[in-house]
Amino acid sequence: MSKQLPLDELSSVIARVKGLLLTEEKVDRAVQLLAAAAKQAIPGTLGAGISLLDTQGRRTSSAATDKIVERADTAQYELGQGPCLTAWASEATILVEDVQTETRWPEWCAAMKDLPIRSVLSTPLTAGKESLGALKIYAAQPGIYDGETSRLLQLFAGPAATLLANVQSSETPRRISNSLETALYSRDTVARATGILMERHGLSSDDAMQELLSRVRTDRTTLLEECSRIIAAIPGRRG
């Protein structure tokens, strides 16, 4: 039975996800938000999950809205088969009408016998020419998902993949930026401290640095701590 979600409602969900992701800095948090939104967006869904995979199909990040989804996904990773991995590898939406009668992944389907999962729908997360992974939803009843549901999930996955790609690509420069900021702060602090010692004691730059290192050894502190202490001790000045 087709369970249509009005396009204006779907657009609202996607817009909300965009707003959330634009404030996120970490992929793991982003996929959690997307999985929760997918579960909410598709009627009849028991749980949803997202898997981000590398070029060899190895998981790099994942999210699951429920323990059942987590177990179903973990079985796919361990067995190396299942609708999620197939959707990613084939870059096509995979529909499972009933896990109990499905024959494409016998080992994975056998592992699902103890879980209340009957219907599965998985679609690739593709940004440009790159397949990032897959988005999948699970239902407790057979025949819950159909062609219409597949199209709805694809509509959801398109902007989701683009947003995830942006979050992924922004993490590396952000880490570099944070490291650079720390390095620049440290360098500035050391420069200020050596300048204070040069002015106070009439030392050269090299001698001021040697004085700093001597204090670090004597006081058993770090260079940055010693520099901060010198700067803070200047009357009328704050760190």
Score class of each variant (00 low, 15 high):
M1K: 04
S2Y: 01
K3P: 02
Q4M: 11
L7I: 14
L7Y: 07
E9I: 10
L10I: 05
S12G: 11
I14H: 03
A15H: 10
A15T: 10
K18V: 10
K18N: 14
L20E: 08
T23Q: 11
T23W: 02
E24T: 08
K26H: 07
K26Y: 04
V27L: 15
D28V: 06
A30P: 08
Q40T: 09
Q40F: 07
A41E: 03
A41D: 03
I42L: 10
G44Q: 04
G47I: 01
A48R: 00
G49D: 11
I50G: 02
T55S: 08
Q56V: 03
R58I: 04
R59C: 12
R59P: 03
T65L: 08
V69E: 04
A75H: 02
Q81I: 01
Q81K: 05
G82W: 05
G82V: 05
P83A: 02
A87H: 07
W88Q: 11
A89D: 11
I94C: 05
L95H: 00
V96P: 06
E97L: 02
E97F: 00
E102F: 00
P106L: 06
W108Y: 04
W108T: 01
A110I: 02
A110G: 14
A111F: 01
M112T: 00
M112E: 00
K113L: 02
L121P: 03
L121G: 04
L121V: 07
T123M: 06
L125Y: 10
L125G: 11
T126I: 15
K129T: 14
K129F: 03
E130T: 14
E130W: 03
E130L: 12
L132A: 12
G133S: 08
A134R: 05
K136F: 00
Y138Q: 01
A140C: 01
A140F: 00
Q141M: 02
I144K: 01
I144T: 09
Y145V: 00
E148F: 00
S150E: 10
R151N: 11
L155F: 03
G158W: 04
P159T: 07
T162M: 08
L163D: 08
L163C: 04
A165N: 13
S169K: 14
E171S: 12
E171C: 12
E171R: 08
T172S: 14
T172N: 10
R174H: 09
R174T: 13
I176Y: 13
S177E: 15
S177W: 08
N178A: 13
L180P: 07
L184M: 13
Y185N: 10
S186Q: 12
R187V: 04
T189F: 01
T189C: 10
A191G: 03
T194Y: 07
M198L: 04
E199F: 09
H201D: 15
L203T: 13
S204D: 09
D207G: 10
D207P: 03
Q210V: 14
Q210N: 12
E211Y: 11
L212W: 09
L213F: 08
L213Y: 09
L213Q: 15
S214V: 09
S214M: 06
V216L: 03
V216W: 03
V216T: 07
T221D: 07
L223V: 15
L223K: 11
C227W: 11
C227V: 10
C227I: 12
S228P: 03
S228D: 13
R229Q: 15
R229H: 15
I230F: 13
I230A: 13
I231A: 14
I231T: 15
A232Y: 08
A232L: 12
I234G: 06
R237D: 14
R238A: 14
G239V: 12
G239H: 10
